[in-house]
Design a binder for these strands. Structure first.
Length: 552
RNA sequence: GCCCCUAUAGCUCAGGGGAUAGAGCGUUGCCCUCCGAAGGCGAAAGCGCAGGUUCGAGUCCUGCUAGGGGCACCA
């Protein structure tokens, strides 16, 4: 009996009580929270439904709890029901029932934890979208790890997810990038507002290598354009390849420039004009975002005729919608949070529903620290840490795990000194080690003739087995909750708990018999539990884009 | 001035209104004659402050304090 099954049984009981006129008419909850009580004396599972819903039926919590408890007594698989405290319902299952989940998990394999809750939803998830004026830095790397895991989580719930990267190859910053390249190619100083760093020299040289030397003798505008086109392409390739090394591949790399070349920007503006959301003032064209809650209106076409940045976003959003995405999710850094109200206003101006068709996740920044002291990331000071730097020092697994295990609402400190020491203080090793252990136990079991030829779940009755089984049973809900809350970090935290439960079990219950002893049913049964743990750890690590190693 | 995020153990962070607030690292005491000690068991150690809502608040609301980020016809 899984917590989901118990929850469903409880909902059915409430419906029955209503049919029997014990409960007043009224809306019933569609889901009831069934939790593992912290204190094992409180049974296998507990629910607070009486405390939650008693008031809406004009009952005292304990009275409602008694009614539910009485009905639950007769439910198959339930051995004991208690009402405790103000109205908690504590449930104990029949021996063996809790153990069945081990076999179910092994049978489900890769599909354990998946659901079809989001099937039919077509989601567009945009993240990273770092500008092609430099390598992917530490901050963006966080969104690469988080975004990719979130995509996997949403896919596990049946959603059709497109990972998208908005490639910002239009506008003034690209011009500065091009001027910087050109200057370095000529051996000149970087312009005042330009980009510095060794990578600029590298790319400038690459551009030169790939073309005729006469490039430098072209008229200024043509030379700059040549460096812009070639430099952006090289930068783009580098970003793409470092993300690929990081295990993050996008389905769509969308070039901002294409929106201008295709006329999509003009069409978006026309549509907003037709909707009566645009006005002219001071020679510029404005979008009246204040109609939809923004604190001031926004310029779309500047008085010099150039498009403001938001113009591209208008067209880009419409383009996503026209590609059939019900929901467009953006992951943006905290330095862009001020951008949210105007994006939401834009969404509303197009007649869409902000928060539904357009969803923006704001993630806090990554701070660089050395020995506890903050380090300012500065390209000029050479203290920019890139995705590749991070991976070079700690590897993909540790990097992804460290960046994904915290809530995006918290800023994250990355300590350089710690990373340089290559210490194993990253919890990813704790989880990976647990998985490696399950595999080695399986290897040893096989060599000693322990096989999964029989399964007697009632033998999984040690305290550490009950704990582990309950933990494994939570995986589907953890995934579903992580999807609902857009919180990949919950999966990481959950895996750490699974690993802990497994290590404790390993310490108490042997899968292989002691030397000279016979292989018994209990060993064969435990092998199922070992395999189930392996499955959950493997599936969970897969969600995080981290390898589940056979050995370490 | 306005907006967003944060404040939980020595450090980095979890914690879905519920029962005795957790993990990793660090400190410290124990446990390898048999499936991996990258492990387990134990100890010390914590919800910024003040109100409020609630049967019940680390969690929700208000105010305060502190830290981070943002408030362009930049992108």
């Amino acid at each position: 009996m899984t917590p989901e099954a118990l929850s469903a049984a409880l909902v059915a009981i409430l419906r029955q009580l209503q049919d029997d006129r014990i409960l007043a008419a009224g809306e019933l909850p569609t889901e009831v929270v069934v939790e593992r009580p912290r204190n094992r004396e409180h049974g296998d599972w507990a629910t607070n439904l009486a405390l939650q819903f008693a008031a809406s039926f004009s009952l005292k919590p304990r009275d409602l709890a008694e009614h539910v408890a009485k009905a639950l007594q007769t439910t198959a698989g339930v051995s004991k029901v208690d009402v405790a405290g103000p109205g908690f319902i504590n449930i104990t299952l029949d021996a063996g029932l809790a153990g069945e989940i081990a076999q179910q998990i092994v049978d489900a394999g890769e599909s354990y934890g998946r659901s079809d809750a989001l099937s039919g939803e077509k989601l567009n998830l945009e993240f990273v979208s770092a500008n092609p004026t430099g390598p992917v830095h530490l901050g963006s790397t966080r969104w690469a790890a988080v975004g990719d895991s979130l995509a996997r989580i949403l896919q596990s719930q049946g959603a059709e997810v497109t990972r998208e990267y908005y490639f910002n190859d239009h506008g003034a910053q690209i011009d500065r990038f091009a001027r910087s390249l050109l200057a370095r190619a000529r051996g000149d100083q970087i312009p005042e507002d330009g980009y510095a760093g060794a990578y600029i020299d590298q790319i400038a040289n690459q551009v030169l290598d790939g073309t005729a030397v006469e490039l430098l003798n072209l008229p200024e505008a043509e030379a700059q354009e040549a460096f812009r086109a070639a430099g952006v392409e090289l930068m783009f390739q580098e970003i793409r390849s470092s993300l690929h090394e990081f295990g993050v591949d996008f389905d769509v790399y969308f070039h901002e420039n294409s929106l201008y070349e295709s006329g999509a920007v003009d069409r978006a503006v026309e549509r907003l004009k037709a909707g009566g959301h645009m006005f002219e003032q001071d020679g510029a064209l404005w979008l009246r975002t204040t109609t939809f809650g923004d604190d001031r209106d926004r310029v779309v076409l500047k008085s010099d005729g150039e498009a403001a940045y938001i113009a591209g976003d208008l067209a880009y959003y419409l383009d996503k919608r026209s590609r059939g995405f019900d929901r467009c999710i953006y992951i943006l850094g905290a330095d862009h949070h001020g951008y949210v109200p105007r994006m939401m206003a834009m969404c509303a101006a197009f007649g869409d529903e902000p928060g539904v068709n357009l969803e923006i996740l704001i993630g806090q920044m990554v701070n660089l620290v050395r020995d506890g002291e903050p380090v300012r990331m500065s390209k000029r000071a050479g203290t920019v840490v890139t995705l590749e730097d991070l991976v070079d020092v700690v590897g993909v697994d540790a990097a992804r795990y460290a960046l994904v295990r915290s809530s995006i609402n918290s800023s994250l400190d990355v300590d350089l000194a710690l990373l340089e020491k290559k210490t194993n203080d990253n919890p990813v090793f704790y989880v990976q080690y647990a998985h490696a252990r399950t595999r080695q136990v399986a290897v040893n079991a096989a060599s000693l003739g322990v096989e999964r030829v029989e399964f007697a779940p009632e033998l999984l009755d040690h305290a550490t087995e009950e704990e582990l089984l309950a933990k494994l049973a939570e995986f589907p809900r953890v995934l579903s909750h992580a999807a609902d809350e857009r919180s990949p970090h919950r999966v990481a935290r959950y895996l750490e708990e699974v690993a802990g439960s497994y290590h404790r079990w390993y310490d108490n219950c042997r899968v292989t018999p002691l030397a000279g002893a016979d292989v018994e049913t209990v060993h064969r049964t435990r092998l199922w539990l070992n395999e189930a743990t392996s499955t959950v750890l493997r599936n969970g690590l897969g969600i995080l884009g981290v390898i589940a190693p056979e050995r370490m």
